[in-house]
Computed example of a mutant assay.
Amino acid sequence: MDTELPLADELAIVFARLSNVLLTEETVANALTLITEAAVLAVDDAAGAGVSLMDSTGNRSSAASTSDIVAQADNLQYDLGQGPCLSAWASGYPVDISDVRTDLRWPEWGMAADDLGLRSCISVPLLSGDLAFGAIKIYWKEPKAASHRLIRLLELFAAQASIFLVNVQARERGRMLSEQLKSTLTQRDIISTAKGIVMANRGIGSHDAMLHLMTRALKEARTLREVADEIIQTTQGLGT
């Protein structure tokens, strides 16, 4: 990438390639994959990139990576409980490691990353307001001194990626709630229909019909929905 371009222009070029696709993504997993690919495009000579999403206890909830070696390096951080990604998330600030062989902040992870063939890394937190909910990291196979320009570029990139992820997560949660609501309404309608059939067949009131359904479900060790489905199917069968 032309390093003479202003940072805003560099970032615009990268996201212009993927923004239309990202805006149409309906799942966090797909958006993560696209974001890691965009991160590799944003820098030179990267071995790969990864995104980690973490809960309030620091446990990874979701992740994506551009290669197996990145996934292995990330998993080592989670297993060992140390590394630049976890530190960026915990502090809310960018963390860089120019050479795993000389940086002693995370000795176990550094040795393991070196064994994988990775020598340097920059990790930037994903922020929603003041809350860090994950981190994006880029690895190199050679030692790399992190310039202020490169870190600033990744900070701007992470800020844009955070907006995409927050929007996609909200959309995904909304869709899940919508599906749950539809399922609940469907179940309610089925049980209500079965109750009406019992009322008509037995000549009893609403309360007694519901009690009949619940008693039968308990006696047969089935759900209320299963009992209701059977009553409706049986009635439909008699009507044909």
Rank of each mutant, 00 (worst) to 15 (best):
E10L: 14
V14A: 08
T24P: 00
T27W: 06
T27L: 07
A31C: 04
L32T: 04
V40S: 11
L41N: 13
V43M: 10
G50Y: 01
D55N: 15
D55G: 07
R60K: 13
S65P: 00
S67L: 02
Q72C: 03
Y78N: 05
S98N: 03
T102W: 01
P107E: 14
E108G: 02
W109M: 03
G110T: 05
L118M: 12
R119T: 07
S120W: 01
S120V: 01
C121A: 14
V124Q: 10
P125E: 15
L126N: 07
G129R: 12
I138H: 01
W140P: 00
E142Y: 08
S147H: 13
A158G: 03
Q169D: 11
R175L: 13
M176E: 15
M176P: 00
M176Y: 07
S178A: 15
L181C: 05
T184H: 12
A194Q: 04
G196H: 13
I197H: 10
I197N: 07
V198Q: 01
V198G: 01
R202S: 04
M210P: 00
M210F: 11
H212A: 14
E220G: 02
R222I: 02
V227N: 03
A228G: 02
I231R: 12
I231T: 10
Q233Y: 11
L238E: 14
